[in-house]
Design a protein around this nucleic acid. Structure first.
Lengths: 232, 232
DNA sequence: CGCCTCTTTGAGCTCAATCAAGGTGTGTGG
DNA sequence: CCACACACCTTGATTGAGCTCAAAGAGGCG
């Protein structure tokens, strides 16, 4: 609980809690604990009963579902400020709808379902803020659906731009704030790794993007934007 | 307002209003009016300011977005009991995120935004019911994302099953409760009409499905289910 | 009767999947 | 410290599902 209090200053600026007094945020986190996860460690396992939901503090988590066909599909990337499994808390016997896997070392606040039912549920303002996060997610999913007919190059460009952190903008360069492998891009787009690699290699050669370790940098945002809207 | 009162008996059984007294439902519909639309008539136009949201009464509406590439994509099929544009009502200056087009003659209750802000917003229970509808929609979108790698046959089968009305089950036959063209199936899956036609023609020849007018009937649900899970 | 939507079938072509093989870096146990 | 496994990246060759283009028949409607 002590670690939790020290994390308060991290939580409070998130849109979810913006403007709320310290005491109130503390109340909203009642019974919560900080989970620290390593690269590829599982935070939530799909199918298990959901006794808590999470607010991402730092790092990132990929939310995956495994299709009957064997291969996993990435449904969403959760970055700091995002909630995981909050939508299903009001259900009678909530089951986790996705598996959440850490991308690099990450931290999240796990808040027990009881706290949600007791404190969050009766706060309409807060419910709307969660709804806003979901609205974003829904928008991304709809966007993805819109691009099913588009060539893969366009879909990759779109993904990079969606994940590019606006805050890191320097001139025409953007930086992705999460470590992202080609495989993960492929799993998120429903494509093969090889195809993603071929596309991104071309862009690297052209100087549109650069990769160090697993940090992707969009060097020529203008070009990538052109591609993402199909103007190539 | 008179027509509205006569529609009350239709609205009240919807999960959205289930268990609420007549007077309360009437209050929730304050200022509302019934919109009757013909086949292919536009109920909502994407991009326009949203002064009202809708609860579908009868028939169906397809929610579409037009991609920069020109072609339209169907994001969702809204059937009776579903809400359209409710999620964005709390926003300061809400714009319609989709175009809603009538599929066959349909009816919907248009409820002004003010009523939402005055009556709906302060009712947490109601907000959760809307969230449930959205949860369903989100689940469908995630499901669609999961199937991006699956062959088209599987995706078509999955769509048919999603739209099949459980209530119409007769033995192993299911009926789709909305008139659906091959083009609409294609637009929903991000595929070409021709490909959809070829697949469904095969199924018709095999006796798995039958079409009269634009009412699709799944004759051999077992076979279609097999195909939808990739067991073909 | 001409226009429009919806359906159908055929032929050719292309994008991206699959298969195959090799390279690199990191962690792990002997 | 080496060997081995494992995750990730890369490149090439082959193939096929599904797109595009083309052409045409069947209602429904003003």
């Amino acid at each position: 609980m002590n670690a939790l209090e020290s994390a308060l200053s991290e939580i409070m600026p998130f849109p979810l809690f913006a403007g709320y007094p310290r005491g109130m945020v503390l109340e909203l986190c009642a019974g919560g604990r900080i989970a620290t996860t390593d690269h590829r460690q599982v935070l939530f396992q799909m199918g298990e009963p959901a006794s808590a939901f999470a607010v991402v503090l730092s790092g990132a988590y990929k939310l995956t579902k495994h299709s009957p066909g064997g291969s996993d599909v990435i449904v969403h990337f959760s970055t700091p400020g995002d909630v995981i499994a909050a939508l299903i808390m009001p259900q009678a016997k909530p089951m986790l709808p996705v598996t959440a896997v850490s991308m690099g070392p990450s931290r999240a606040v796990l808040i027990p379902r009881e706290t949600y039912l007791k404190v969050w549920k009766s706060n309409p303002e807060l419910i709307f803020r969660i709804q806003n996060l979901l609205s974003t997610r829904m928008h991304l999913l709809q966007n993805h659906k819109m691009l099913t007919r588009a060539p893969l190059t366009q879909r990759v460009a779109d993904l990079l731009l969606n994940l590019a952190d606006e805050k890191t903008k320097q001139g025409s360069a953007l930086e992705l704030s999460l470590p992202l492998t080609r495989k993960e891009i492929a799993d998120s787009l429903g494509a093969s790794v090889e195809a993603v690699i071929r596309i991104m290699s071309d862009w690297s050669k052209l100087g549109y993007i650069s990769t160090t370790d697993q940090q992707i940098r969009v060097e020529r945002a203008d070009k990538i934007i052109d591609i993402s809207i199909g103007a190539d």
